[in-house]
Amino acid sequence: MNRINNKLKEENTSNNKVEKLLSIYFTAGYPKLNDTVSIIKDLEKSGVDMIEIGLPFSDPLADGPTIQESGVSALQNGMTTETLFSQLENIREDVGIPLLIMGYFNPIMQYGVEEFCKKCDKIGIDGLIIPDLPVDVYHQKYKEIFERYNLKNILLITPQTSEERIRFIDSISDGFIYMVSSASTTGAQNSFGESQINYFKKISKMDLNTPQIVGFGISNRETFQQATKLTSGAIIGSAFVKFLKENSINQINEFVDRIIK
């Protein structure tokens, strides 16, 4: 069974108090080219449940300034798809939590979609998040390849996604659904407003088969708790990337403690 499914099952069955899953995004190759492995290890040690490794892209359409800048730095540092794969080659000797790669479609296309998936499987990557690979193209063209290499393709929904489409996405999803908290690019917000809370409630009432994890706009304990009240977990990206910009990578546990301790 895939580590993502396992993790979500585990979180749901740890009876007494329901543990919510904390997932952290960071951009591979940032702040330094070879920080990737130590960031992953430190995140796991600090109690993070799942990690999204960002494959940097020159033109990240769905990202706000913080993640854009980290991507520019990472590319300047020399990060490439091949480099990332070689950094991650032995990651499963030390790291047990689910690992996903989040990246845009063009670099994956250039690598070759099947080759990319094969490599991910070999390393022990559990899933992919590709914001600009549309649901229908994935469904018709790539689903079979992803499944062949045991990769969950994580699909997104937003407050503007219609109920009918959410049902469709739920029907072809496995692992979790990435619930974008608001109509926005990535970036930290200080708190969630009424419309976002209502959106969380609406989705919760739909009683979907696939667990939902909220992303975009989660930056601190308050937003983490708000986002996970009705969902299985939340993803923090920009706030963590910003933390890495301003602090040493040896202080990762401080960041995580502030969210979940």
């Binding site: 020159s58 670099p107 994956i108 296309m109 250039q110």
Partner: peptide, 22 residues
């Protein structure tokens, strides 16, 4: 250019071997 995706469309585009748009 090589085949790739830019601004929402699959087309020919100038890029590095690694798929970064130039």
């Amino acid at each position: 250019g090589e085949e790739g995706v830019i601004h929402g469309s699959k087309t020919l585009l100038m890029q590095t071997d690694d798929g970064q748009i130039t």
